[in-house]
Design a protein around this nucleic acid. Structure first.
Length: 954
RNA sequence: GCCCGGAUGGCGGAAUUGGUAGACGCGCCAGACUCAAAAUCUGGUUAUCGCAAGGUAGUGCAGGUUCGAUUCCUGUUCCGGGCACCA
């Protein structure tokens, strides 16, 4: 009986579906486990082998936990709003809902073949009104809430209004730079004034922010769509422009997002990335008076108030509001030129710029401690959004300040004595201060509180905690996103009534931008006549809370009942890529904290454990085409009948090559081929499916594209050998591999195990289809423990031997350990070893094989289910009792110890595990080969580590 | 530029807490079966010297700690991910 994987897999997938075997209930006496994959965007290009990597890992873990007695929630759905669908709509006139639906169905079809255990009855789709109704609802809760710093939690805005009515702004005056007011002043404000003040506190609020504006396209562009200051489509110039935008006040949660990292099992790298992003720093704000005597002050934020006497110049961001006041008539022209240059540059370009740029304003401010005149410069390396948008530059201690000073010949004051060599800045905190007035002689660390006290005493500044994180821009001038449940009246935003949700996205005729930078919705009469908000929400709106909807996906009363979220609680295992490190993960953590504050869920960290899967890179293949110089006719002929040379010849000198292939040139292009000259060799991506290893299937290649139909090939040893390179897997590089083809050829079980066998899930690695054969062979070997291809059934009910039990229990131990620590690659390897060992022992015994099947079920569910039934079992192997490891079966009495002399292993000795130091020394020193290595010298020391090794030091 | 990773045979990788570097698989080489091929099975496979026994070197590079370092520390090179509107 043969292993007919295709038939077996189809049979069981249908059976599992019919039996709804993966449907889980919210009511169970079993312990729960929630295993989640990061929300996929259903891309039009379909899945390649890199996509399912994380899904296979989570599926293995899901099945493993289920076998171990857990009620496991393992759902899947779609983050269906997004830019690519809208761009596709613009290009092809197909409604995003239609193309998205098509993409989802392709996606689903591909997933189903791999045999995942998703509970599809819980599928969600962020673009469907019954889902985004609740995204809008949560937005309304954010809009109607403010952050009470005293209580360190979000509270209803009504509480803030009540406080304003009772005592004015007194309890929240430190929050924002708005004038304080009394209760009676509040009462006297008109509606607009009151609402404007409230807007300063709402957790979802409207403000102004800079966007990438492309005048020629009349639209706002994503960073992705801007390349070096020009639009990706059309190459039109892009500048920054301020637009009205919605924001989420994530900054209020900065501390809690930071502290929360201690409660979750994320990798240290992930935690570090998040905490760097939040960027909490302790420093001071200091006011510098204008040298002109103007009452205006230039306020800077510094993390190093101790270096105040080392300030040699100031740098303000090009967007800084005081620039007009600071710019002197003489410098006006150059300042304007500089600012317009900066406007054309993205924030990324500004930060990455190595070239030093800047411009002097012509003005000076005064150091508040010694009244020294300090020039004020403008430079793009200072960002408006961070701190106060202005810095005090201390070139002896800061690298960028130092380079700036050097570049513009600004004299440098040394306040750290010998710690500064004049060649590069030294950011030390341990030097003793010099040239620093009342701080002279103090270690820098000790000077910080002193300066801070003095700032407060003189009322010229104060200590200040700052965060790098900024409020999250929450609106897009786009069509394909959730509409905001907001209506505008006289410049005031009013929330829609909850009963009017969902506010459905209307159908539009065109996806062209609206007037004046607004989104496509601004073109709709039915929309604008109701004064509805024309922005839509960004991609991360729906994905910030989707893990909750899976718990209670069909609830029409609420986004997720408290009963459901209390039962399933946090996600126990979350698998996805590191690219979401600071975006999605921070946003969804913030939303969880917010929902927790309002008592809507009972936990404030959504993901208990996070595993980041690595990227699967593509292995590209190249063919080498010769390019020629000749007559027009010859060049046209060369294009029509291209000649490709095998990889081994591409490094030959061109004349040598020409000489070598002249026969082929003449054969392809006729006698005139003598008159051409080979001038270069181009390497072209070739579809990896046309290549076996490195050998090109030339017939398939000529059939691939019409322009290659008349190709000729220069072979080496009768083969055309391709070049190869590891690159990102993408359609445009023709290096994608479709999982469908592999499942077709080897089966889903082989595919799953091979993806895992490639290497650790967390690590990036190149894809190579070749190795899949080895895994397939392993499954065939497993099959042969049960069935012989000619003899049929070979398994028996004979009792197993000790040696066989030992092999089984070694496997139980190893697979448990490896699966628990997500080391799936070593688990696959351990499975291979087990099957190899059972093969050597000629084991065909049911009592061993049956348990082995349960162990392998998470990895290769189909073959295990089939064989499980062949052994005569009823019911699914997924409901079988998981084998329990018995350590007594693996006890050894002795060990073959490596014996090293001076750290180099020289021999091995079998020694009882009971042996003590003296016994070991005696045995080791009596050994012939040890004696030989000692060469008469007496050992200084014998190191004996029980169950590990022995080392003799001479 | 800044932040975070990674680097081990021809290739993917293993070595879980500092203790025999290269498990497992691919590829390659040799052999068995076969008219032949495929499939399958057996053996070999880091480099280098050696008929062999065995020796020497070896985990990106340069140092350090240690009886002992792929593992810890310092510096450095290259590659990948992210950098706030791709999702």
């Amino acid at each position: 009986m043969e292993y007919s994987f295709n038939a077996i897999e189809k049979k069981w997938q249908e059976k599992w579906k019919a039996d709804r075997i993966y449907q889980v209930s919210n009511l169970s006496t079993k312990p729960k486990c929630y295993v989640l994959d990061m929300f996929p965007y259903p891309s039009g290009t379909g899945l390649h082998v890199g996509h399912p990597l994380g899904y296979i890992a989570s599926d293995i873990f899901t099945r493993y936990k289920r076998l171990k007695g857990f009620n496991v929630l393992h759902p899947m759905g779609y983050d269906a709003f997004g830019l690519p669908a809208e761009q596709y709509a613009i290009d092809h006139g197909i409604h995003p809902a239609t193309s998205t639906k098509q993409n989802i169905s392709n996606f689903r079809e591909q997933l189903d073949r791999i045999g995942f255990s998703f509970d599809w009855s819980r599928e969600v789709n962020t673009a469907e009104p019954n889902y985004y109704k609740w995204t809008q609802w949560i937005f309304l809760q954010l809009f109607n809430s403010w952050y009470n710093r005293g209580k360190a939690q979000a509270r209803p805005i009504s509480e803030l209004i009540a406080a304003f009515e009772e005592e004015g702004s007194i309890s929240v005056s430190g929050y924002r730079a708005i004038p304080s007011f009394t209760a009676s002043e509040w009462g006297a404000y008109n509606e607009k004034q009151q609402q404007d003040i409230l807007m300063e506190y709402r957790l979802a609020y409207c403000g102004f922010g800079e966007v990438n504006w492309c005048e020629a396209l009349g639209t706002v562009l994503a960073n992705d769509e801007v390349i070096n200051g020009f639009s990706e489509r059309g190459g039109y110039p892009v500048v920054k422009r301020k637009l009205r935008q919605w924001y989420l006040r994530i900054t209020e949660y900065a501390d809690r997002l930071l502290e929360g990292l201690d409660k979750v099992a994320f990798s240290d790298a992930m935690k570090e990335m998040q905490s760097n992003w939040i960027g909490k720093s302790y420093g001071a704000e200091i006011d510098f008076a204008f040298a002109t005597g103007d009452t205006k002050k230039l306020r800077v934020y510094t993390t190093r108030p101790d270096t105040i006497f080392g300030v040699d110049f100031m740098v303000v961001a090009p967007e800084h509001e005081l620039i007009p006041a600071l710019t002197t008539a003489a410098e006006k022209k150059s300042v304007e030129e500089y600012i317009s240059y900066v406007k054309s540059r993205s924030e990324r370009e500004r930060l990455a710029e190595k070239k030093i740029t800047g411009c002097f304003t012509g003005s000076y401010v005064l150091n508040p401690f010694n009244q020294r005149q300090i020039p004020v410069w403008i430079s793009e390396y200072v960002l408006a959004g961070y701190g106060t948008g202005a810095i005090m530059a201390v070139p002896c201690g800061d690298e960028r300040d130092f380079k700036f000073a050097q570049h513009f010949n600004i004299p440098i004051t040394n306040i750290i004595g010998s710690h500064f060599d004049g060649k590069e800045a030294n950011p030390t905190k341990d030097a003793r201060l010099e040239n620093s007035d009342f701080l002279d002689g103090l270690p820098m660390r000790e000077a910080v509180p002193l300066v801070n006290n003095k700032l407060m005493e003189l009322k010229i500044g104060n200590p200040r905690v700052n965060y790098k994180i900024r409020d999250a821009a929450f609106s897009r001038q786009r069509y394909w996103g959730e509409p905001f449940p907001i209506r505008w009246e006289n410049g005031v935003a009013y929330p829609l009534d909850e009963k009017d949700l969902p506010l459905e996205l209307p159908k539009v005729e065109t996806y062209k931008p609206g007037p004046d930078g607004e989104g496509p919705l601004a073109n709709l009469k039915i929309w604008t006549s109701k004064h509805l908000e024309t922005n839509t929400m960004p991609g991360y709106a729906g994905s910030s809370w989707y893990y909750l909807r899976y718990m209670d996906p069909h609830n029409t009363e609420t986004f997720c009942s408290r009963g459901a979220s209390d039962y399933w609680n946090q996600v126990d295992l979350y698998i996805g890529g590191t690219e979401h490190a600071v975006g999605h993960l921070l946003y969804s953590r913030m939303w969880a904290k917010f929902l927790f504050d309002l008592g809507l869920i009972g936990f404030d960290e959504p993901y208990k454990k996070l595993v980041n899967q690595g990227m699967i890179q593509g292995s590209s293949r190249f063919v080498y085409r010769i390019e020629i110089d000749g007559s027009d006719e010859m060049e046209a002929l060369a294009k029509q009948k291209p000649i490709f040379i095998s990889a081994g010849m591409k490094n030959k000198s061109l004349p040598e090559l020409q000489e070598e292939i002249k026969y082929i040139l003449r054969k392809s292009w006729g006698a005139d081929a003598e008159k051409i000259k080979i001038i270069s060799i181009s390497s072209l991506h070739v579809d990896v499916s046309l290549v076996d290893g490195l050998e090109l299937d030339v017939t398939a290649f000529t059939a691939w594209r019409p322009e290659y139909a008349q190709s000729s090939f220069v072979l080496e040893n009768g083969k055309y050998i391709c070049g190869s390179e590891v690159e990102k897997m993408s359609k445009s590089k023709f290096n994608t591999v479709n999982p469908n083809e592999l499942v077709e050829k080897y089966g889903a079980d082989t595919f799953r195990m091979y993806e895992m066998f490639l290497g650790p899930v967390e690590q990036s690695k190149p894809w190579d289809t070749k190795g899949i054969e080895g895994v397939h062979r392993f499954l065939r070997k497993l099959w042969r423990l049960f069935f012989d291809e000619t003899k049929g059934k070979v398994w028996t009910t004979d009792p197993a031997t000790d040696a066989e039990w030992k092999v089984l229990h070694k496997a139980i131990k190893k697979l448990d350990e490896d699966t628990d620590r997500f080391s799936f690659n070593t688990a696959v390897s351990a499975s291979m070893i087990t099957v190899n060992e059972l093969g050597e022992l000629k084991t065909h015994k049911k009592e061993i094989l049956e348990q082995l099947l349960i162990l392998l079920t998470p990895y290769a569910p189909h073959i295990c289910e089939e064989l499980w039934h062949e052994l005569g079992n009823e019911g699914s192997v997924l409901n079988a009792p998981y084998p329990v490891y018995n350590e007594k079966l693996l006890v050894e009495s002795s060990k073959l110890y490596p014996v090293a002399i001076n750290g180099k292993t020289r021999t091995e000795l079998n020694i009882s595990l009971e042996a003590n130091q003296e016994q070991v020394e005696e045995m080791v020193l009596a050994d012939e080969s040890v004696k030989k290595w000692l060469n008469g010298n007496s050992p200084k020391k014998v190191i004996y580590v029980k169950n590990k090794m022995i080392n003799i030091v001479v």
